[in-house]
Nucleic acid binder design. Structure first.
Ligand SMILES: [Mn+2]
Ligand SMILES: [Mn+2]
Ligand SMILES: [Zn+2]
Ligand SMILES: [Zn+2]
Lengths: 143, 143
DNA sequence: GCTCTAAATGAAAATTATTATCATTTATAT
DNA sequence: ATATAAATGATAATAATTTTCATTTAGAGC
């Protein structure tokens, strides 16, 4: 139930963005990969079909897509800077610290907690980030 | 109930690290500030008393302290790269997207969820990151 | 206290990630 | 087809982090 390429481009248009070949290419690349990819990885992938695209355009496109919540950002410990992937809607991540495998999971575990925080702090809460870090089965064996 | 300078240095020694004036300075700076600080901010602060310290040493010291869980890392949306602070133990963050204010909160909201994920995925879970992003009362008014 | 050595430091350069500028091109409304 | 605001990409600028390596030093052992 991942967002389709069609839905993504529709949303872009609806929000007044132009539909350029570059943007299509980035969307195509992200939609056709099951993995979370870094900006740079995505850039490499897009260049296979679209060698003239600029890295900056990839950054810009991802920025827009993330803001519209059409893709999701991934943090993860260490050297940070978020990774991205085509997104189903709100979900969280379970990340293998060794091999980088990412498992998405969803559910609304935080609604009560969020309400309590609002009440106690007066914050208006816009979102949250929940990620588990661990070691996948393969990497556990490989010890 | 934040970790004291004494406890932090004790833990460093226990783990076989040498106690240098530079490390003391970094620990002093972090322990004496109620806020979460970036590496650079901390560097500035330390230099007031210890003008000759190198930025690299600050990086290295924070790295060690974080690994020993004597300080905690903070991510936060946008431009990322983790911030740090002296740490009480495990807790989470509520961050104002406008002014950067950080409120710590604790509690074990995720134990059940964690158990379920272990069961279903076979992952061995080591930790997690939970952060809420929103707008503090002051910044709401300032709209 | 003095000696020795592995560990730590800091200057500098190298990497890496991200953002800003700006002249040129282009998607699309009319 | 035209006009125009938006988008692109080359390039430079900024920023955060890591690597290298020669020099210094904390602390263990005498
Ligand atoms: Mn995801
Ligand atoms: Mn904290
Ligand atoms: Zn793994
Ligand atoms: Zn605020």
């Amino acid at each position: 139930m991942r967002l389709s390429e069609k839905k993504i481009t529709a949303s872009l248009k609806r929000h007044g963005y132009k539909l350029t070949p570059q943007r299509r290419a980035v969307i195509g690349a992200i939609a056709s990969s099951p993995d979370h990819l870094t900006t740079t990885a995505l850039y490499q992938k897009v260049r296979q079909d679209h060698p003239a695209i600029g890295l900056v355009t990839v950054y810009r496109t991802l920025d827009i897509l993330a803001r519209l919540e059409l893709i999701c950002e991934l943090h993860a410990g260490g050297s940070c800077r978020s990774y991205t992937i085509a997104a189903p809607g709100h979900h969280h991540h379970l990340i293998c610290a060794d091999c980088g495998e990412v498992i998405d999971f969803s559910g609304h575990y935080l609604t009560e907690l969020e309400a309590r925080l609002c009440r106690e702090t007066g914050f208006e809460i816009e979102g949250h980030l929940l990620e588990f870090i661990g070691r996948c089965q393969d990497c556990q064996r490989a010890t």
